[in-house]
Amino acid sequence: MIQHVTNPVLEVHDLTVSYQRKPVLWDVDLTLPQQALVGIIGPNGAGKSTLIKAIMGLLPLNSGFVELFGKPLEEVRKRVSYVPQRESVDWDFPASALDVAMMGTYGQLGLFRRPGSREKKLAMEALEKVGMQDFAHRQISQLSGGQQQRVFLSRALAQDADLYLMDEPFAGVDIATETAIIELLRQMRDNGKTVVVVHHDLQSAQDYFDWIILLNMRLVASGPTEETLTPPLLEKTYGGRLTELSRVSELLQKKQFPIRETKPTRK
C-alpha cells in the first residue's frame, strides 16, 4: 500500500542508504502531501532515523534522490527544519534555552551577520509557543527531558519553515509534554505546514497522524492513516525482517561489495 500524491511536499525517489557498507534502507520511494502530520513507524533498527537523516543530506545516498517542494535540498534549505534526537547533543554545553532557540535563526543570517534583537524576539516567541518562556535563561542541563525536547522544538519553530522533520520528539518525554507537543504540531499543520515525526508508539499513532509511513528496512506502506494502520500491514512491518534482504545486506558488507555500481545521478 504505497500511495503517491501529485504536487508533493517531499519526494523520495528510489532511496538506498547504508551504514558502514551495509544497506539499512532499500529503494524507498514515497511522496508526502502538503499540510499533513506524518508519522514514520517501524521496529527498532528499521531505518526510521536514517530516512530523515538521508532526506536532510546528513548521510550519503547509495542511490536515488530527494526533492523538497520539487527542488533539491540546497535550494530550499530555509523552508526545511530538522529536529535531531535529543541524545545527539551534549546538554552540559554552556548555553541557555534562549541561546538554543536562537540557533534556529542562524540559517537566515548568512555568513557575517550576528544575531540581534530581532532574532532574540523571534526566539522568545518560539519559546512562548512551547511554553518555555519562563525558562529562557535557564542553562539547558538544568531542564528536564521534556523541557529539553521543547527547547529543541522551539529552535525549529524559530526557523519558520514549511516542512519539519523530527527525530523521536516524544522519546523520554512525560505525558503532559507529549500532549502539549502534539497540540502544537496540530496547530502547525492547520497553518499549512507539513510535519514528519519519527514515532515509536503504535497506540497513539492512530490519533496523532493523518499519514503514516511504515518502515522496516524497506517501505512497507505510505498513505492515509486509516488505510495504512491495518493489521496485515502492521504484521508485515513488525513480523520480522525479510530474510533474503537481510542476507543480501550482510553479504554486501562482508564481501565489501559496492552497494550500487554507479553513483546516484542527481543529488
Binding site: 504505497i2 528510489d14 538506498t16 532499500w26 529503494d27 520511494d29 542511490s63 524497506r218 517501505l219 512497507v220 525479510l242 530474510t243 533474503e244 534482504l245 542476507r247 543480501v248 553479504l251 554486501l252 564481501k255 561489495f257 559496492p258 552497494i259 550500487r260 555500481e261 554507479t262
Partner: peptide
C-alpha cells in the same frame, strides 16, 4: 516483496546480481 514499481527495480538488480550466492538463488 518490496512492492516496488517494475520501472524502479532495474538499477538495484544491476548491483545485486553480482553478489547473490547459489544458496540465495535457490531461496528466491
Amino acid at each position: 516483496y518490496l512492492h516496488l514499481a517494475s520501472d524502479h527495480v532495474h538499477e538495484d538488480a544491476e548491483s545485486i546480481e553480482h553478489v547473490l550466492t547459489p544458496e540465495l538463488e535457490k531461496r528466491l
